[in-house]
Nucleic acid binder design. Structure first.
Lengths: 221, 221
DNA sequence: GACCGCCGTCTAACAGCGTTCAAAAATCCG
DNA sequence: CGGATTTTTGAACGCTGTTAGACGGCGGTC
């Protein structure tokens, strides 16, 4: 122990003050991001909104991407909360499955900035350079939590674990595709209601589960 | 006619020389983009690769985005070619549908730079500011061409036009979602083979078409 | 009570970006 | 060749994320 702690509670208090300032900056980032968009949100604008000089942000975060990464963590946490709440409001497995998947879809449909953040990651941003490998672990963990009710619902309806996993993957991909294609508003095929498409898709998958034990067979061909 | 054409073939020759230089620049952009990625490809790098000074590019293109937009046009053209070729290699409607959809998927799975370009648009890039409204028309038209064989196959299998349209939309969204989620390689659920997932999904939809006349009912509920 | 050291922030600057503008070079035509 | 037009250039602008060094203030030690 090269450092002799000067006083017991000191480090902890420092830490909590530091955390508070990080949250202050993240809040400013969220506001600027909300009004300017992800690409339009400059570090200087975020710093100004937080009452700081740009350089000061580098004391609290390693980079601008680190701020985005932390915002994504928060976003995924809110997503998981929304999905779990929606699932818990239903009693029957089929209802829980549907509610969870629709809540996932609705979360991103109604919060385009969270969608931007997610797409930023998917498009290759937030590379784990200095962000640490742990970031990816957290990301996958949060995603697993948010999607868990879908798989659980499928298993409760009689699907094998493998079939349930495949259904989760399919629903996830379908939702992401619908969200992305609707998002720009410039692809004519997707000017129609995306939620309707999502509902229709889900209804069919649940019906398949109820009927045959699997909407799509896990052995193909 | 305020401009008196000095000689008949002159404007045409100018035009063709200009087109040639545009293609030269687009080729340089494609190469730089291939090795540096969309975000890493700077205008100065593209200009250097083409043997130009950055400012010279602005004589041939309105902006960097205009270069990207033109690259996207070319990309969508190649996509349509690949899809139509794959469909034409099959005789039966079901085979044509499957081949077209799988070719669409494979085109982007095997050409990540084209995928980047497409996602750049979906993420909000290539806004029709100075790019002109005509860009969006061309974009939608190219997409319609590339996806036409899927809808045609569905109708040949007995689907109503509306059901066929919905199937195209669904397949499109599913493919885009799978491509996007696989693309980063950082979402653990999608480390498995995306083509397999696409095939499985397609098989089921085609089976639904063959069985009931519609894989997913067009009246939901 | 004066001093030292660290923490948090600021000022100033860097290199890079897309873009613009006036001037120069190259090209073409009569 | 002369003059007009089309292309290209060099230099600059304002923006971006980021870094280095200096500065004030606060906590703990002598």
């Amino acid at each position: 122990m090269p450092l002799s702690p000067k006083s017991p509670g000191r480090a902890a208090r420092r830490q909590s003050v530091g955390d508070h300032k990080r949250e202050l900056i993240l809040g400013a980032a969220r506001r600027v991001f909300e009004s300017e968009g992800l690409d339009g949100a400059s570090l200087r604008a975020i710093a100004a909104e937080a009452g700081y000089t740009p350089a000061a942000l580098y004391f609290h975060f390693d980079s601008k991407e680190a701020i985005y990464a932390e915002m994504l963590d928060i976003s995924l946490g809110r997503l998981a909360d929304a999905v779990l709440a929606a699932a818990d409001a239903e009693a029957e497995p089929a209802g829980r499955l549907r509610a969870a998947a629709l809540a996932f879809f609705a979360f991103y449909a109604e919060n385009p900035r969270d969608l931007d953040l997610g797409f930023y990651l998917l498009r290759g941003g937030l590379k784990p350079k200095g962000l640490g490998r742990a970031r990816d672990e957290r990301l996958n963990a949060a995603l697993a939590v948010a999607l868990a009710p879908i798989g659980a619902g499928a298993e409760a309806l009689g699907a094998t674990p493998e079939a349930a996993r495949l259904l989760v993957v399919d629903v996830f991909a379908h939702a992401v595709g619908l969200l992305l294609l609707t998002h720009t508003g410039r692809i004519r095929m997707f000017e129609a209601s995306a939620p309707d498409l999502m509902r229709r898709y889900l209804d069919e998958r649940v019906r398949g589960l109820l009927a045959g034990g699997a909407g799509l067979p896990d052995g193909r061909g």
